[in-house]
Every structure is written in structure tokens, then in C-alpha cells.
Amino acid sequence: MTVAEQCLLLGVDDKTVLQDWMERAEAGDDLSLPNDVLEGIGCVLSIYASLVILLNHDRSKGWVRAPNRAPLFQGRSAMSLMANGNRKDLEDVARYLLSERYR
């Protein structure tokens, strides 16, 4: 994902804030993140895990950006849905993939 997409998915308005958090995390510094950011990270991790289980790492990259015929996506890609800035859409993609895993 691009940094702009990461910000949209996590609900972070400023790229420098996200980059600062990432640098601090990589350095092993203590870091306190807002709950909504933690929820976004949880959704992204759930999506990633589901895709690796359902497809595999290489195919999952393509799935995220490919048009999708499932009713949730209405022909759009998962990324276009998730990156519109609405947390509910990110959560919906995570739930969709979980349902596919346990189908």
C-alpha cells in the first residue's frame, strides 16, 4: 500500500504522524495509539490473514486491487472500497473475507 492508502485505512490525517509512529515502533519505543487507529490495524491484519489463508501472499496482492463482482464491491476493487475513508467499509471487507474463510 502507498502511504496515502495506509493513512486512509487507519484514519490518520497526516502522513508525518504515521511515519513517526512507524519509526518509533521500529525503534522499539513505547507507543500509544488512538483506539480507532488500533481498530483499523486490527481490520487490516484480519484482511491480510484471510487473504493469505484463502489465496496466498502473491495472489492476495492482486485481489485487493482487482475488480470484484461480489455484491459488497459492486464491481470495484477492495482497495477502492476500503480507501474511501469510511471505517465501516474497511470493517465490511474484513467481515466479508472472514465469511469466505468459514464458508
Rank of each mutant, 00 (worst) to 15 (best):
Thr2Gly: 04
Thr2Gln: 07
Val3Asp: 10
Val3Gly: 01
Val3Arg: 11
Ala4His: 05
Ala4Cys: 00
Glu5Met: 09
Cys7Asp: 08
Cys7Phe: 06
Leu8Ala: 15
Leu8Gln: 15
Leu9Tyr: 06
Leu10Asn: 13
Gly11Trp: 03
Gly11Tyr: 02
Val12Gln: 14
Val12Glu: 15
Val12Leu: 15
Asp13Lys: 04
Asp13Met: 01
Asp13Ala: 06
Thr16Val: 09
Thr16Ala: 04
Val17Pro: 03
Val17Leu: 15
Leu18Ile: 12
Leu18Ser: 11
Gln19Gly: 02
Gln19Ile: 13
Asp20Gly: 00
Met22Leu: 13
Arg24Lys: 14
Ala25Asn: 09
Ala25Trp: 11
Ala27Ser: 07
Ala27Asn: 13
Ala27His: 10
Gly28Cys: 03
Gly28Ser: 03
Asp29Ile: 06
Leu31Gln: 11
Leu31Asn: 09
Leu31His: 12
Ser32Asp: 07
Leu33Thr: 06
Asn35Ile: 09
Asp36Trp: 08
Leu38Cys: 07
Leu38Asn: 03
Gly40Glu: 10
Gly40Ala: 11
Gly40Phe: 11
Gly40Ile: 07
Ile41Glu: 05
Gly42Phe: 02
Gly42Ile: 08
Cys43Pro: 06
Val44Met: 00
Val44Ser: 00
Tyr48Glu: 01
Tyr48Arg: 09
Tyr48Gly: 05
Ala49Lys: 04
Ser50Ile: 04
Ser50Tyr: 00
Ile53Arg: 13
Leu54Gln: 03
Leu54Pro: 05
Leu54Ser: 00
His57Met: 07
Arg59Lys: 07
Arg59Ile: 08
Arg59Leu: 05
Ser60Ala: 05
Ser60Asp: 01
Ser60Met: 03
Lys61Val: 07
Lys61His: 08
Gly62Leu: 11
Val64Thr: 10
Val64Ile: 12
Val64His: 04
Arg65Leu: 07
Ala66Lys: 15
Ala66Gly: 11
Ala66Ile: 11
Ala66Leu: 12
Pro67Ser: 10
Pro67Asp: 09
Asn68Val: 12
Asn68Ala: 07
Ala70Arg: 15
Ala70Asp: 15
Ala70His: 14
Pro71Asn: 11
Pro71Glu: 08
Leu72Arg: 08
Phe73Pro: 00
Ser77Asp: 04
Ala78Val: 01
Ala78Ser: 07
Met79Asn: 02
Met79Asp: 04
Ser80Thr: 11
Ser80Asp: 15
Ser80Cys: 11
Met82Glu: 09
Met82Gly: 07
Ala83Arg: 14
Ala83Met: 13
Asn86Val: 03
Arg87Gly: 06
Lys88Phe: 09
Asp89Pro: 01
Asp89Arg: 04
Leu90Cys: 02
Glu91Cys: 08
Arg95Glu: 14
Arg95Cys: 07
Tyr96Ala: 02
Tyr96Ser: 03
Leu98Thr: 13
Leu98Cys: 08
Leu98Lys: 12
Leu98Tyr: 01
Ser99Cys: 06
Glu100Trp: 04
Glu100Val: 12
Arg101Glu: 10
Arg101Phe: 03
Tyr102Pro: 01
Tyr102Val: 12
Tyr102Glu: 14
Arg103Pro: 03
